[in-house]
Design a protein around this nucleic acid. Structure first.
Length: 555
RNA sequence: GGCAACGUAGCUCAGCGGUAGAGCGGGCGCUUCAUAAGCGCUAGGUCACAGGUUCGAACCCUGUCGUUGCCA
């Protein structure tokens, strides 16, 4: 009986390209995990989509003088292309701007209202009388009361980093027209988050399999007390509030976007031809994993679980393996300074699997990590080309030259060969344990350990000498090495799916590596089987690209 | 300003109470099948700093400095 695994991935704002920090932080780990779960035979649904209604989307639209829909559709298309090129295997990547999402979000709103978890109250907001509208916090600018920085926004000061309320700004001005907004009272719906404090604390304390930093942070957050929060806003762009008299208000994006996990699951089920199938993942025995960056932790360990409890009869997260941040060449990613490596741009010049490998090897799983080009070239040349690619290539060329490109007949295996096969099997099991526990760097190390063991074995057996003195032993050695390469193909498939398919083909096997799943048959390679002409798996990179790539950063 | 995390070999990072680890890089050697790839050996660290608890601390506690994040 396969397990059901729901893989939820953070929703990117549809206003900019994906960079390596986001890729290594959530999309790649989610994909590696989903691929592994599919390989071991579990039922997987991996969903996400564009966050259409975030303020950054309308800001970008205003800046470019186009509609938010235009920005949304531009980046939705780009995201889909990015996933395709980076090999991120979403079962559905939708947006929050679908009729389905509106219905699901409104249903959740109304159900929570019925159950008394939402209530009306008034609050103060900046209002621009010349534009005749309330202004989102980010649309108010002025001087920071703390540091005097002149371009501070109503939500935060970029000069000193402090978070602000619009009315604190000295000399508020409207970002749209420049006039001075006033502060007006406005009525909104609030969520009674405080009602869930105890239940969430109890739940979180029991989640021993969570990463300690995620759990500790959440427990601390909850112990600090939950404040009720406004969940509607005076805006035109977003999901309408399904209550009379609220025509000029929308559901606030932080409340609405997380509902995307549920609405996307429903859309996926609908598209798959079995509209009720989402319930398997949300109401039956199933584990839900949420992949995101650390800035999103409280939304997924506190607010979304509170909403799920409020709605009722929906599964809470099973794990929230949030990652930290990736720095680039020693500095924080800054999209405004273009201190970022953009995935679409990166894939124009580099093969996908080395990119996936380098990002997986440097995933910020336990602390902030570092991406730099010297390391990228090193990982490609010293680890992929030299350790893995060369292993495959040296074995297959020897087989090609000495066994007429057919699988050699191993005859009876000797102790050393059996020992290597056992080592490979243990490595594969270890990789599986790590993958299952979302420890992707460790899983990669376990897999690469198999490659190093195979290289050691070859050095010890020296089949290039044996072909002149003991053809039987050469056959035994090369068959064993090929069989271990077949094992490596499996262990590395979640990380580098394209490469595993290549290896699968180079070993003369039918079907696909992915289709074969996570099962290593020691007798899969039949003596006498025909093999294609070997080709190197990876390309060695010249050191000069380090400087070339660095020069693209900034400006 | 408050809270938290982090500070371990040249680099990227593990370890988190019991004789300092990995990969890569450096040095020396072996090998020559392979995309000058592979293998072995070796050097390198007062585990940020100062105190404390303990038979014993990188690991627990306190303080200092530094970096980062969250909050005000």
């Amino acid at each position: 009986m396969p397990d059901r695994v729901l893989v939820c991935v953070a929703w990117p704002y549809a206003n900019g390209s994906i960079h390596v920090g986001q890729a290594a932080g959530c999309y790649l780990p989610a994909d590696i995990f989903a691929r592994f779960q599919r390989m071991i035979g579990n039922e997987v649904a991996m969903v996400s989509g564009s966050d259409a209604h975030g303020t950054p989307v309308t800001i970008t639209a205003d800046q470019q003088g186009v509609s938010p829909e235009d920005i949304l559709s531009k980046y939705q298309n780009e995201f889909l292309k990015t996933w395709e090129r980076l090999g991120i295997s979403f079962d559905l990547f939708t947006t929050t701007h679908t009729q389905n999402h509106v219905e699901v979000a409104q249903d959740m709103f109304l159900r929570m209202l019925e159950k008394g978890y939402l209530y009306k109250d008034t609050m103060e907001q900046a209002y621009c009388s010349s534009d005749e509208r309330f202004l989102p916090d980010r649309y108010v600018e002025g001087e920071c009361p703390h540091c005097g920085y002149d371009g501070a926004r109503g939500d935060q000061c970029d000069g000193c980093g402090r978070t602000l309320d619009p009315e604190e700004l000295i000399g508020m001005s409207c970002r749209l027209c420049g006039s001075s907004p006033e502060i007006r009272e406005t009525e909104h719906f609030f969520i009674r988050l405080s009602a869930f404090e105890g239940r969430l604390l109890e739940w979180m304390r029991g989640q021993d399999h969570f990463k300690p930093n995620v759990r500790n942070f959440t427990v601390g957050f909850l112990e600090g007390g939950l404040k009720d929060r406004a969940i509607t806003r005076d805006l035109e762009w977003g999901v309408p509030v399904p209550v009379e008299g609220y025509d000029d208000k929308r559901i606030y994006v932080w409340f609405e976007a997380v509902i995307g996990y549920l609405s996307a699951s429903k859309e996926w089920a609908q598209r798959s031809g079995d509209p009720d199938r989402w319930e398997d993942f949300w109401r039956k025995e199933s584990r839900a994993y949420y992949f995101m960056g650390k800035d999103n932790i409280p939304f997924h360990t506190v607010i979304w679980p509170a909403m799920l409890l409020a709605y009722g009869d929906l599964n809470l997260p099973y794990d929230v393996p949030a990652n930290e941040y990736v720095n680039i060449e020693g500095q924080k990613v800054s999209t405004s300074r273009n201190w970022a490596v953009w995935i679409p741009d990166l894939l124009d010049r580099h093969d996908v699997d080395p990119v996936r490998y380098a990002l997986a090897a440097n995933m910020p799983e336990t602390s902030d990590s570092e991406f730099n080009w010297a390391d990228y070239v090193r990982r490609n040349n010293d680890e992929l080309v030299a350790t893995y690619g060369n292993l495959v290539h040296r074995v297959l060329t020897m087989v090609g030259r000495n066994f007429e490109r057919t699988v050699p007949d191993p005859g009876e295996l000797d102790a050393e060969s059996l020992a290597l096969l056992d080592t490979a099997e243990r490595g594969l099991e270890e990789a599986a344990r790590h993958l299952n526990g979302c420890r992707f760097r460790n899983g990669l190390q376990a897999a690469m350990g198999i490659a190093r063991a195979a290289n050691r074995y070859l050095d010890s057996k020296a089949p290039w000498r044996a072909v002149r003195t003991d053809m039987g032993d050469a056959a035994r050695t090369l068959w064993t090495a090929m069989t271990v390469i077949n094992c490596l193909k499996i262990a590395l498939c979640p990380y580098m799916p394209d490469t595993s398919e290549k290896v699968h083909g180079l070993l003369g096997l039918d079907g696909s590596a992915e289709g074969e799943g996570w099962s290593w048959e020691r007798d899969a390679l039949r003596p006498g089987g025909a093999l294609p002409r070997p080709k190197p798996l990876f390309t060695k990179l010249d050191e000069s690209i380090i400087e070339e790539e660095r020069a693209r950063l900034g400006t």
